[in-house]
Each structure stands twice: as C-alpha cells, then as structure tokens.
C-alpha cells in the first residue's frame, strides 16, 4: 500500500448518464497521477450524518480529472447525486490494488510471456462494474497498442449504457440485457460468455477463429464474478476480479472488509497481504487494502 491522497476536490461534472446512473468528475491532479485501473476512491458525504466512506471505483482519468460512475442505491448515493458542479467534495484515493499492479502485467514495461505477443483480453462487466473496465481497456490499449485485441462482454439490467465509450477502445463489444429487446443478447453475462466463446479449452480450435483470451478482467455483482471465475477456470484463462465489501475505513485500519482467500503458490500470480493460512486453510484479506482486485482462483467463492 502507498499513501492515498485526500482533499476537498472541485466537482466539474455530476450528471445522470442513464436511468439511476451518474457520472461524477472532479479535478484532483494528485489522485489522477497515481490512479490505476481497478483502484477506487472513498467519497465522503457532507453533513456528518452519513459518516462512512462510499467506495467507488475509478472509471477514468483524463489529465487532472478523475471520473467515477455510480448507481443510486441508497441514502448516500442519493445525496451524492444532489451535489452540483462547482461544489467541493471530500475524497480520498486512489485506494486498493489495481488490475495491473503485478510484474509482467500487460501494462508493464516488460510484460511477461503471454502479453509480449499479440493477445486477447476479455473484459467481463455488469452494470456499474463496466466503467472501471473501460479504464482498464484504455490502459491496456495505451501500453500494447495494436498488439492486443480487446473483447468486452457486458451485462445490464435494462438498457445498456457506456456502449460508445467501450466501442472507442475495444475491438468487440458484446452486450447482454435482462430486459428483452434492450440488447442484442437477452440474458445475463454468464450466458453471453458461454455463447460467445464456445470453445472448450486453451489451444482448442475455435469456430470463429478468435484467439483465446490470455487474460480476463471482471467487475460486477458477486454472482457474475463467480460465473466468470467458473468460465475462465474451465477454459484456463487467467482472471482478475474486483470484489466489493462493506467498508468501515477503506484504507486498511478496521478489518471490516475481510474476505476469505487461499494461497496460490504461483510465481506468475503474486499475492498481496498475509500469507499464513488459518486452521481451515484460508487467509483472510482486506478487500480495501489487499484488494479489491484479486486473482479469481485465490478467492474462496
């Protein structure tokens, strides 16, 4: 962990981009410089009644401006939606681990084996889990340019949003919606994955001639992450997932956010945090400080 920045940052935009979904932009040169895809920011609400931070993933960084995309789900996000451009908002970030903060990752100056040559990256996202993957896609594209094919598989409850943003940086954007007729595919992301990648295992020939993804990144509700994890495990695709948990502090002080993980013992998959399993063989890790991004196979689902 490195020290996060904190301040009262000026909000430059806070607008609805879809039904119940808001995009919040604020000017924070220090957070912008330090942020990696997969990391999050703690947003603190004014007033003192709602004390706890609202952890929101970083959805984009452009110059000094950081973007967060959030859904209104309760009192805090509702209050947040009422904040006008020009106001200042207490924010701390970037926090947690990112998708690419390990040696040999696709954005590393010296990427390891699979990422030196052209490779395919698969993004699996659901709802507000999609925007942070867009940030990840931009980072991979910037680092590997033409030597990567990026395929996004995104699911929405209603009408898909953020589509253009993904199309700008991805080679293929596959959309699913649980609302009939709202997207090309009716159903959830798990079904869309099965339909889009029918091949069985790494190395086996594919009907559509697509290269097998070397890496998959996922962000969204836990059942979706679990499905992505099963899918990738069956096909031998390396998957990194971003977990969510209720947080007391968001920076590692309270142990409020711990989840169960296991030791992998794989040099290509360096793990953060403690490495001593308990009596049951699990290692409890803090989602806020040792995550939120974990290897899918280290998570005890």
């Amino acid at each position: 962990m490195v020290k996060a920045h904190r301040g009262q940052y000026p909000v430059t935009k806070n607008e609805s981009i879809a039904d119940g979904i808001y995009e919040l932009c604020f000017e924070a040169p220090d957070i912008a410089r330090a942020a990696n895809a997969g990391q999050f920011a703690n947003v603190y609400l004014p007033g003192g009644a709602m004390l706890l931070p609202r952890p929101i993933s970083i959805a984009d960084v452009r110059g000094d401006v950081v973007t967060l995309v959030y859904a209104i789900v309760g009192g805090g996000t509702k209050a947040l939606a009422g904040i006008k451009a020009g106001a200042r908002l207490e924010i701390m970030g970037p926090l947690g681990t990112g998708y690419f903060d390990y040696a040999g990752s696709p954005t590393d100056a010296a990427p390891s084996g699979a990422f030196e040559n052209p490779f395919t990256a698969l993004l699996v996202g659901g709802g507000v889990g999609a925007p942070p993957l867009h940030f990840a896609a931009r980072r991979i594209r910037a680092a590997r340019r033409g030597r990567v094919k990026i395929v996004a598989c995104l699911g929405f409850r209603g009408h898909p949003w953020y589509r253009e943003e993904f199309e700008r940086v991805c080679d293929e954007v596959l959309l699913a919606s649980e609302a009939e007729g709202a997207a090309a595919f009716h159903g959830n992301v798990a079904h869309l994955l099965d339909k889009s990648f029918p091949y069985k295992e790494a190395g086996s020939p594919q009907a559509n001639g697509q290269a097998l993804p070397s890496l998959a990144l996922a962000c969204g509700p836990r059942p979706m992450l679990k499905a992505a994890s099963d899918f990738c495990a069956a096909k031998n695709i390396t998957l990194r997932v971003s977990l969510e948990e209720r947080m007391g502090c968001g920076y590692g002080a309270c142990a409020g956010c711990t989840c169960k993980t296991r030791l992998l013992g794989d040099v290509l998959k360096p793990q953060n945090g403690p490495n001593m399993p308990n009596a049951e063989g699990f290692i409890k890790k803090k989602v806020c400080a040792h995550g939120p991004v974990f290897w899918a196979d280290e998570v005890v689902w």
Partner: peptide, 8 residues
Amino acid sequence: DGNDAPKI
C-alpha cells in the same frame, strides 16, 4: 477468525 461479512 472473526465474523463473516457484512461486518459494518
């Protein structure tokens, strides 16, 4: 081990 989440 402590409790399971949610803990906050």
